[in-house]
């Protein structure tokens, strides 16, 4: 792993939870522990893939990083400054500083239909960013700047005055990307950014994201449930299960030598297009579903679905640490996969 000294984004022991209120008296009756103690680093100019099932908390993690949810505790360090402590105030120097930093973190949403305001033209959607953040782009430059952004994401600038419904799904996602780029961010969070697209269009958008990263030096926090896509675009991968990271490492480490049983199960569940040509793999079919984050299992959260679970797993929580191989995992009994996993040869 070639990590520069100072990571762009550094998340430390982050906890985010949502209260559950009773219907009648609105009293707090419980808590959904969506993110419980997550730490990771994202170096500048790199892509961290975040994978996990729905209910793993990966979207909440992303929303906490970008400030749509307030964490209960922990740190979100961007360029060394903690956004969580800065976000206490509405006015003053701290609030201004927070706005300046937040501007550098943008997001691309999953649904290209729901994430664009249907009542605004593409030009208005993109320039809204500058309206909210005066001083980034002077008003007389807006037209030119919108045209530049549209061209950059592969859309015709002549169509800037059309409404979102006049574009196809793939084009809408490009508009969403242009909006995310409007404030010249350094970190872009892609929350299932290509999942809703048709296969042929998904490849176009993935290539676009790769090109933008090369041109603009962006960092991506790339959230997806499709492991093939994550492997394709990421330098590093973090596997999340029920609010916690269970294994992190470089893309090659995670995909060729996963040691956590959940990572192994996840990888073995990925459908292969040519099963007859693929090396024989150990098919692990997990039973059951991810447990409720309201009352997660004691000890290791994966133990209820794990075929290797021992009494120790229920009593002692495995922390994310270097155990086997050269990357951190959170399992008391890490093992390299029985059969060699498909080799992740070559690099982009």
């Amino acid at each position: 792993m070639s990590s520069p000294a100072e990571p762009l984004l550094s998340v430390r022991d982050l906890h985010t939870s949502f209260p559950i209120h009773s219907a009648l008296l609105r009293r707090k009756v419980g808590e959904v522990h969506a993110v419980s103690g997550v730490s990771f680093d994202l170096p500048a100019g790199r892509t961290l893939g975040l994978v996990g099932e729905s209910g793993s908390g990966k979207t909440t993690l992303a929303r906490t990083v970008i400030g749509l949810e307030r964490p209960r505790s922990g740190q979100v360090l961007f360029d060394g400054r903690d956004l969580v402590t800065l976000s206490g105030r509405r006015r003053g120097a701290k609030a201004a500083e927070l706005r300046r930093i937040r501007r550098q973190i943008q997001m691309i949403f999953q649904d290209p239909y729901a994430s664009l305001n249907p009542r605004l033209t593409v030009r208005q959607i993109i320039s809204e960013a500058w309206m909210i953040n005066p001083g980034v782009v002077p008003r007389h430059r807006w037209t030119a700047e919108v045209n530049d952004l549209l061209a950059r994401v592969g859309l015709n600038p002549d169509h800037a005055d059309r409404y979102p419904h006049q574009f196809s799904g793939g084009q809408r996602q490009r508009i969403g990307i242009a909006r995310a780029l409007a404030l010249r961010p350094r970190l872009v969070i892609c929350d299932e950014a290509v999942s809703a697209l048709d296969v042929s269009v998904q490849a176009q958008v993935l290539n676009l994201l790769v090109d933008l990263q090369a041109d603009l030096g962006l960092s991506y926090l790339f959230i997806a449930h499709d492991l093939s896509v994550v492997r394709h675009i990421s330098n590093q991968v973090a596997v999340m299960y029920l609010g916690k990271l269970v294994e992190t490492g470089t893309t090659d480490q995670i995909f060729t030598a996963p040691v956590h049983p959940y990572t192994q199960a996840l990888l073995s569940a990925v459908p292969v297009t040519r099963p007859w040509a693929a090396p024989p793999r150990q098919q692990i079919i997990l039973t059951g579903d991810i447990p409720s984050p309201v009352s997660p299992p004691s000890g290791c959260r994966f133990r209820t679905r794990c075929w290797k679970a021992q009494p120790r797993c229920a009593s002692e929580e495995p922390v994310l640490a270097h155990r086997l191989g050269d990357h951190p995992s959170a399992c008391h009994f890490p093992e390299l996969p029985a059969q060699p996993q498909p080799a992740a040869v070559g690099a982009r």
């Binding site: 296969v199 042929s200 998904q202 490849a203 993935l206 492991l227 093939s228 896509v229 492997r231 394709h232 893309t251 995909f255 990888l267 990925v270 292969v272 297009t273 693929a278 090396p279 498909p342 080799a343 992740a344 040869v345 070559g346 690099a347 982009r348």
Partner: peptide, 9 residues
């Protein structure tokens, strides 16, 4: 168009 889990990146 499909990134493959066992293909080259």
């Amino acid at each position: 168009s499909i990134p493959e889990l066992d293909g080259p990146r």
